[in-house]
């Protein structure tokens, strides 16, 4: 597959030249975590939370930030631009299929999210002494499934809109809505149970990410009526499959 390998190389270069995405998608989550970590009140452990500091409980939200930024804003904007400007069409006149570009774009975008997450986890540990994920395999699974569901949502947006500016608008709306459930505006511990329970099933599934990172934090953010971890994962996987099939069904190459 020389075409795919070359496209991945090019898409990676294009991403690195897109300074806004590098800044907001890849570097900003780390900056956000470190910025909040600089607030002394968020670094004080409280007996109510079993000795955990607010920043320990909040950390997975920075992870969600990067995932949402890339899957719902960056990828749909790039793909709609490619369609709007006839780039997909141009490729379909060659022996390569335009789906190869989409695939390359998704691979590169996913790699950037992984880099963003790794950077953030490392910086959180090194600077703020946030314990690294206690169950890395579970975290990886929750991350993968949650990201897939987000990407499905992003691809539906890329499928239904005509222009890249419309994709950007929808992306921003989705970003705000998803980040609300992702705990960016209001810590989940302060949300009513109903919202917290709904939040289990809003991609990428913050509760599962939190529980996999730290079992203690997961217990604090969980609700009485919450589902067990693997059931949450299974439901999120189902959501990912449904959203992706809808996106594939609606997607137009031109």
């Amino acid at each position: 597959m020389p075409a795919l390998t070359n496209m991945i190389k090019i898409e990676a270069k294009l991403l690195l030249r897109d300074s806004a995405t590098v800044l907001f998608g890849v570097l900003f989550p780390t900056g956000l975590l470190l910025g909040l970590g600089a607030v002394p009140a968020l670094r004080e452990s409280s007996p109510e939370t079993g000795g955990l500091r607010p920043i320990d409980i909040w950390a997975p939200t920075a992870l969600v930030f990067a995932m949402v930024m890339i899957a719902v804003q960056h990828v749909p904007a790039v793909i709609t631009t490619y369609r709007e400007r006839g780039i997909l069409r141009r490729v379909s006149t060659t022996p390569a299929h335009p789906r190869t570009i989409l695939l390359a774009q998704m691979i590169v975008a996913f790699a950037s999210v992984v880099v963003s997450a790794a950077l953030m986890i490392f910086a959180g540990w090194a600077v703020l002494d946030i314990a690294p994920p206690a169950r890395p395999v579970e975290l990886a699974v929750a991350f993968l499934v949650g990201y897939a569901a987000l990407l499905g949502l992003g691809m539906i947006s890329a499928a239904v809109v005509r222009t890249s500016s419309a994709a950007n608008q929808i992306g921003t709306l989705l970003f705000v809505a998803l980040m609300f459930f992702g705990g960016a505006f209001l810590p989940r511990t302060l949300m009513p149970d109903l919202l917290r329970e709904a939040g289990q099933f809003v991609p990428p599934g913050l509760q599962a990410l939190t529980a996999a990172w730290s079992a203690e934090a997961g217990e604090i953010t969980a609700t009485a009526g919450g589902q067990p971890f693997w059931l949450q994962i299974a439901i999120m996987a189902g959501i990912a499959v449904i959203l992706s099939s809808v996106a594939a069904k609606l997607f137009r190459w031109e």
């Binding site: 294009l14 006839g86 069409r89």
Partner: peptide, 22 residues
């Protein structure tokens, strides 16, 4: 094609090398 273009940030040599690999 009329009205088809390429990504803004791609360089001339990159576009040629990429398309030749198809």
């Amino acid at each position: 094609l009329q009205e088809s273009s390429f990504p803004d940030a791609i360089k001339v040599a990159e576009a040629l090398e990429l398309y030749s690999s198809f």
